[in-house]
Design a protein around this nucleic acid. Structure first.
Lengths: 242, 242
DNA sequence: CGATAGCTTGACTCACGTCAAGCCCGGTGG
DNA sequence: CCACCGGGCTTGACGTGAGTCAAGCTATCG
């Protein structure tokens, strides 16, 4: 039972030391576990959730559906990410959360989390920090969408995912699972499905990545990072007093 | 002296009641005031700030410069916004903060803010919330850049700015100051300068906005909001227990 | 062994970028 | 007072990155 929560503690440990007492506080949090199938809604747009959702295994995405029915994915969350923590304070949620591939999550009631923020300032800062890193990732997506060519935007995304997964021990050498279809890749990057396909092929032809059967393999990280200007500093993966 | 800090308290009051005691805590925070000229750097990319910056008057922007020298503006901050609060926890800052037009700010040392987070959980939650609203704004920019036509993306921005300024009492009827050049508008929306100009003209020709001499006047808010799918819910401007 | 979801390709269109020139206006200095 | 300058705005001509439409292909699964 206390095993289930490990991904969160490990994620926070990357930012700053989490004391044994703080770990016990996290492990004592009431929670329920749930598994969602690929594509299932975890939180629907417009809900007022009374609990927050942490990814234990797999991927969750935030999605926004626009007036004309087009969809934009605004964030990708990996195991250890507290996807829906903002709903603790942001009462109105204007986007949905869905499973990308099969996804196991833990749900924490808001009152228990709020109590934690009343009693444990350092843990609160670490949770706050995790939402600030999400915002830093958002800003990098904005820069990519506004100013990068399609191929470099995609290259940057691959570097970002690789680095985030790697920091949690979720990669196999240069390769990691990523169960998105090309239509979903388009929704992530802001491309049409056709253009997502062509851009992927361009990266393949350059010998930079392989992407098949729900798995990405990086063939030349240095070139990917160089051409897309990827610099992992914004992910704040160094341990510092926070 | 206690007047200077009013914009922050007013901003937080929009989210939830701030008690007299909490107001006193904010007013007691040590701080210095500074004024920057149009375009001046407030925080440079790569700095490790030891203080956080609140906008008192005018506008501040976050900017990211890409490998090829192109610039993307990733956020616009108005009076009452705690622009640089993330640097309290996010030790590595991968973007710059600059003045858009003349800008007056207050600078708060990090150790005082950290102490506040140790002692005042409710205030901490409100500050946290303000950074969560920033992230929600980022997600809407992502959706706009990825999925909206230029003209609707611009219309959405105008609605967003108007609503945020209005919630702080910073508009004159349908009109508000906005000292960006068209080149800067392009950097905000991810357009070339030429396209920013043409898109603006399209909005003008439709009779939806006027934009002259550093001032935006909304001529038809309903149509702007309708065509761009603007829904202010994500700004979380209702008072709720947080 | 169809059915279906996902991938790939080609042909064509269009939104937006680039390049280049001209205009307007306020500021500066002779 | 006027010539000059530069920043910002506007316009036209043209190129290109990405979208759309449509079809065929491939793999998986009941």
């Amino acid at each position: 039972m206390s095993v289930a929560i490990r991904p969160l503690i490990d994620a926070l440990q990357r930012y700053d030391a989490v004391t044994a007492e703080e770990q016990a506080v996290i492990e004592a949090l009431p929670r329920t576990e749930r598994t969602y199938a690929n594509g299932a809604d975890i939180v629907s747009e417009g809900d007022r959730p009374v609990q927050s959702c942490l990814v234990l295994e797999g991927y969750a995405i935030r999605t926004q559906v626009l007036e004309d029915g087009e969809r934009q994915i605004t964030a990708i969350h990996i195991a250890g990410d507290f996807v829906d923590l903002p709903s603790l304070l942001l009462k109105t949620i204007d986007h949905g959360v869905a499973a990308l591939g099969p996804c196991r999550v833990a749900l924490f009631p808001h009152d228990a989390l709020r109590q934690l923020t009343d009693q444990h300032p350092h843990l609160t800062r670490l949770l706050w920090l995790s939402t600030l890193v999400d915002a830093a990732i958002h800003r990098n997506w904005i820069a990519g969408m506004g100013r990068r060519l399609a191929i470099d935007h995609l290259a940057h995304l691959v570097c970002e995912l690789y680095t985030r997964l790697q920091s949690r021990g979720l990669v196999d050498g240069p390769s990691f699972p990523f169960p998105a279809t090309q239509a979903e890749l388009g929704d992530i990057l802001g491309f049409s499905t056709v253009h997502a396909n062509r851009t992927l092929q361009d990266l393949r032809k350059l010998g930079l990545v392989r992407w098949e059967a729900g798995r990405i393999t990086i063939e030349d990280y240095n070139e990917l990072a160089a051409r897309s200007g990827f610099n992992p500093a914004y992910l704040n993966l160094q341990r510092e007093p926070r």
